[in-house]
Amino acid sequence: MKTVVITGAGGILCGTLAKALAQHGYQIAVLDLKKEAADAIATEINAAGGKAIGFVANVLEKESLEAARKQINVQLGTCDILINGAGGNHPLGTTSQSFLHEEDLLNTTEGFKTFFDLDAEGISFVFNLNFIGTLLPTQIFSRDMIGKKECSILNISSMNAFTPLTKIPAYSGAKAAVSNFTQWLAVHFSKVGIRVNALAPGFFLTDQNRSLLTHSDGALTPRGTTIIAQTPMGRFGEPEDLISTTLYLCDPASSFVTGVVIPIDGGFSAYSGV
């Protein structure tokens, strides 16, 4: 039985992937910054007949990841597949408007941010969480894969790595770095038999973005309306929409596939708007 390590697995998207992989015979190391969130997903998996254990890990701290790896090796064996799911955005790396207008420089509204007001620490946090938070777990867990067969790494990029979204330069830049790193690492690991690929999800409703895209009654916000208008399939993604591609990229059926970043976005990245 292969062991899958998933970071950020206490969240909606990676929690769904954890449960789906368990249903297909993988044993799951559920990693999250919040132990209770990891344990909740592991409990669901075990109740459904799968095998999973929750572990706490900070993807920005090598010592934390090393400690998790030691526990996983003892309780589940060495890592065969790593899914780097931890990531996210932060308001300090986000502008208030999509476009800069000259009068914005005179706006004194509390919390209003132009490009010139972006916080360097906030931008660093977003970049580190998404890129360094992918690089460090890979350094720690890919060591387990050397000398084994049918091992792979699956990163989580974003469709905004192809064309950046307005307002979120830090997140867009970080996900572009994840895509580039995926290609670089696929080449670097090609001689030791480790495949490296990435998913590029479009717009999925999560705890992080739900209030930005929908009102409390479920109606779309202006930004949510714009997104749906730019999505040819006319809806947000469901967590389950990520499952089939994940299973394919983790399976030996994709043994000659490495270095790809696959958009799962309802056509958003293919649509020019006209």
Rank of each mutant, 00 (worst) to 15 (best):
N155F: 02
M159V: 15
C250Y: 07
Q183D: 05
N130Y: 03
V178S: 01
Y248W: 01
P252V: 07
V178I: 04
L247Y: 04
K191D: 15
D241V: 02
E238T: 08
Q230N: 15
G202L: 12
Q230S: 15
F189Y: 15
T182G: 05
S216M: 09
F204N: 11
S172H: 07
A170D: 14
T231N: 07
L249Y: 05
P232S: 11
I132S: 09
S152N: 14
T163P: 05
N130A: 04
F189N: 12
L247A: 00
E238N: 12
T214S: 12
S211R: 12
G234W: 11
W184E: 05
T245F: 01
F203H: 09
A253W: 12
L199W: 06
F204E: 09
V178N: 02
L135I: 03
N155Y: 02
T225N: 12
L213C: 13
L135G: 04
L185D: 03
G193Y: 10
L185I: 03
E240Q: 05
S157P: 12
F236I: 06
I168D: 10
P137Y: 01
S255H: 14
P201K: 13
G133A: 04
F131E: 04
V196D: 02
G133N: 04
N197H: 11
A253C: 11
A177V: 02
S190I: 09
R223M: 14
M159Y: 13
F204C: 13
G237I: 09
N197E: 14
L249M: 03
F141E: 01
T221K: 10
S158I: 10
N180K: 07
T245K: 06
L205K: 00
A186P: 14
P169R: 11
T206M: 10
S211C: 03
T182P: 04
A253E: 11
S216Y: 08
T231G: 05
R210V: 15
Q208L: 11
I243A: 01
L136V: 05
R223P: 10
D241F: 07
S190N: 11
S244K: 08
N155L: 01
P169C: 09
N130Q: 08
Q183G: 06
L247Q: 04
A177C: 01
Q183E: 09
I228W: 13
T166H: 13
G147D: 13
S244P: 05
Q208K: 10
T163L: 01
L135D: 00
D241T: 07
I146T: 08
V178P: 03
F204D: 09
G133L: 04
R210Q: 13
P252W: 07
M159I: 15
G173F: 02
F236S: 06
T206G: 12
F236D: 06
T225G: 06
D241L: 09
P232T: 09
R235I: 12
A253Q: 13
A177Y: 00
G133Q: 03
T246M: 03
A229P: 00
F131R: 00
M145C: 11
G202Q: 10
K148D: 08
A176Q: 03
R143W: 04
A170E: 13
S158G: 10
T214K: 14
P169G: 09
T134I: 03
L220T: 07
N160I: 09
P252K: 07
P222Q: 00
K149N: 14
A198V: 10
H215D: 12
A170H: 14
E238Q: 12
E240H: 01
L247T: 06
L220E: 05
D144G: 02
Y248I: 06
S211E: 12
A176V: 00
P232W: 10
T182W: 00
L135C: 04
L249W: 04
E240C: 05
